[in-house]
């Protein structure tokens, strides 16, 4: 159910999102002030500044927010589908598949869009492999799907390790990109924004059904939810969302797992609230983490995936602890 506190939470998160977006626009190798940004956007005078802003800062900020939002959406959906609080967007091996696809592209000497495309192929291949192996369409056992996903992920991990151990060291750096998650090469486009909006509106629309589904299949069926098609749709939506995020940013960890939990602890248990608030918090989280990744040891950059965990672990533990005390 939804109450006044939930609207306050959403309002707070929107404020956080605005802060995150501005923080990301203003910080980096050249620090900008808010007036500078507004001036450059309305009436560009300094060519370098406006170039930095339009070609680097804005795209990267939007990329961070979008990827965070997509991963948080997948995280919520996977946790509901598998009824497992430990589920995250990568649980069906999507990140491993994408990484292997991208690695193959790098090893073949391909570059740019071809790497991204091969990563997407790897991610999709992994999804179908896991579904096929667990024969999920005939027999809906989430435990079997979960186990298959974990085993297939381990398989991808083994392939990655073999590739890492046998390739020249100058390739290793670009390979790490896929494993940790990095926004420095990310280009998100129309497809990503479209998915983000579909996820947001669709997620709110199916919020009530997700509430029922999170109680298990038998309860959901007896309360009138048509499970078969709905669950297949959700698995594919969550997997495609993850694949789209992974192929441009690598496997940014922790966002999909921890964002829904933080919000549940703050009282957003109803999925009509949990979906939009997770997407906003996930987006803000990655945007802030990436801003810090660009600045803490500037001019050197850190991969955003390293920072999400650095911020996420203490934040989660603090909220968990205060919640237990209460």
């Amino acid at each position: 159910m939804i109450n006044f506190k939930h609207y306050l939470l959403l309002l707070f998160l929107l404020g956080l999102a605005i802060f995150a977006l501005l923080f990301s626009l203003l910080s980096g190798s050249i620090d900008l002030s808010l007036t500078q940004v507004i001036n450059q956007l309305s009436n560009p005078t300094d060519e370098l500044l406006s170039q930095v802003l339009i070609e680097i800062r804005i795209p990267r900020t939007l990329a961070g927010f979008t990827i965070g939002g997509l991963l948080a959406f997948s995280g919520v959906i996977m946790q509901v589908l598998l009824r497992n609080p430990l589920a995250d967007p990568y649980i069906l091996g999507v990140s491993g598949g994408a990484a292997v696809g991208a690695l193959c592209a790098v090893l073949l000497g391909l570059s740019g869009l071809l790497i991204t495309n091969l990563a997407l192929v790897g991610a999709l291949f992994s999804i179908f492999l896991v579904f096929g192996l667990s024969s999920a369409f005939r027999n809906w056992s989430s435990t079997r799907l979960l186990l298959t996903g974990i085993v297939v992920s381990a398989g991808w991990g083994a392939i990655i390790n073999i590739i890492l151990a046998t390739t020249a060291s100058n390739n290793v750096q670009s390979i790490l990109f896929w494993l940790i998650g990095d926004l420095s090469q990310s280009e998100v486009g129309f497809n990503h924004y479209l998915l983000l909006i579909i996820g947001l509106i669709g997620g709110i629309a199916i919020g009530r059904s997700l509430n029922v589904l999170s109680r298990g299949d038998t309860v959901a069926l007896s309360l009138g939810l048509n499970l078969g098609f709905f669950k297949i749709l959700l698995y594919f939506a969550a997997s495609i969302f993850t694949a789209m995020a992974v192929t441009v940013a690598g496997s940014v960890g922790f966002v999909g797992l921890v964002t829904p939990h933080i919000l549940r602890l703050l009282g957003a248990r109803d999925h009509r609230i949990l979906i939009p608030s997770s997407m906003i918090l996930g987006g803000s989280f990655v945007t802030i983490a990436d801003s810090l990744a660009r600045t803490v040891i500037a001019p050197q950059q850190l991969p955003v995936g390293a920072l999400t965990a650095v911020i996420g672990v203490p934040a989660f533990l603090i909220i968990l602890r205060t919640n237990i005390k209460r």
Binding site: M1, I2, R83, N84, P85, V212, R215, V219, G224, R269
Partner: peptide, 28 residues
């Protein structure tokens, strides 16, 4: 026994019983 791994309160749970009946898009 229906065990539940994701948190929900008593009131929220009982409200789920109303799921088959028509409702507004967002509000309760």
């Amino acid at each position: 026994d229906e065990t539940n791994s994701l948190p929900a309160t008593v009131l929220e749970s009982v409200l789920l019983g109303r799921h088959p009946y028509p409702k507004p898009f967002f509000r309760d």
